[in-house]
Write a protein that binds this DNA or RNA. Sequence first.
DNA 1: AGGCTTTATATTGGATCCAATTTGATCTGT
DNA 2: ACAGATCAAATTGGATCCAATATAAAGCCT
Lengths: 231, 231
Amino acid sequence: MSKPGQQVLAQLRQQIASGRLPPGARVVEIPTAEALGVSRMPVRVALRVLEREGLLEKAGARGFRVRAATRDDIVDGVEVRGVLEGLAALRIGERGMSAATERALRTCLADGDAIFAKGRLVEADLAAYQDMNVRFHAAIIEAGGGGAIREALARNEHLPFASVRALAADIARLDREYSRLSYAHMQHHAIFDALANRQGARAESLMREHANATLAHVDFAWPEMQRPEPR
Amino acid sequence: MSKPGQQVLAQLRQQIASGRLPPGARVVEIPTAEALGVSRMPVRVALRVLEREGLLEKAGARGFRVRAATRDDIVDGVEVRGVLEGLAALRIGERGMSAATERALRTCLADGDAIFAKGRLVEADLAAYQDMNVRFHAAIIEAGGGGAIREALARNEHLPFASVRALAADIARLDREYSRLSYAHMQHHAIFDALANRQGARAESLMREHANATLAHVDFAWPEMQRPEPR
DNA sequence: AGGCTTTATATTGGATCCAATTTGATCTGT
DNA sequence: ACAGATCAAATTGGATCCAATATAAAGCCT
């Protein structure tokens, strides 16, 4: 159907997310079109869409540039994800879980327990944890989030660390990751407990704190990105 | 610079917001381009951008359609606006107001007080109230909202009643509107009081309730849109 | 008479071409 | 030698043309 168009958009998005196009890199129509094997047209619309999405910014007549996210942008994104997922959790807590949602969440909890039962992490565990984590959050969004919540969350996907998908764990310090991720998984347990007991407000609070917990990792993973605000 | 392109985008946005293009209306490239006096190209990119923005949805090969919002979509949108503006208010409460923000908010409060001091509403008051209301919310977003909050809120602008801009008061029942709007304005006072006293959590709660208050108006203004969820 | 198939038309999607604008470099003048 | 101005190259933005596709209507067969 719209194979080339959507393809170009997806490829550019992935190249930006993967760092293949680093922040600040110039993105020009003609070279990009040649590199992707299409004409300038799909690239042009994709660039416009990506700009409106916040991944690119136009650099005058010199083409576009990959927008560099500041630390404040990331903090914003994480807090926004927190309140939105918190809202979804609140609504589940108020209206009750469906049997399917409860089953999906229980599976996630069991998968996480299995990962941490060994008392240590191996490298393959990181991918497994990330998969479980994505499923856990997706189940909550699907159950408690309406269209507006989903759409608003989609805006955050491009921010590093703001997306649940962005794990970027440090494979060199698996012991440190163990404590960080097992703590996050304990939060998963607490969130499920709140949802199962119809404690909407508690579930919301936990969800917001759960999002904020990822912020501690930012300063560790990006030490060069110092907080520019003595405020 | 980019006069025709941005012009087309702005005109389409305004036509959708003003109801000139009602929900469900087909939007086709060629007639739209002719009506706006440009070629298909700027219309094409504008349609793509509007689609990604949520104002349009593509209807297969029959062009695009102005997205119709269900009542649940509106409830979602209002709740999302509530948590996001609540987050902005929370952050202002925690970090304190700038002098400029306090001045802007005080002006809004005084303007509102002047409107309601007469004890009744005339038709011209509605526009004045809407203007004040937009300024009040904009000041809070500007002061407490980061880029992510602003972007996430922008997604809600297309939903009727979810945007602060959408007032749609009933000029036939100005007495009813008086109580509704004066109550909303009292919430403005309470929000300001919370912000001035560094009560971030209180400001957030008030802001969320302030958004929810607009929901009561939906069922009144759109009686034909019944809640489809006995749940 | 109704349903299925086929055909025709409408509409999007992509490519190429042309114009306008901005940026960077070079050249000249003081 | 430095600064300003002019010129050239690159890049975006718009328009027109062509192909692919989906939808709807009409005709035919059962």
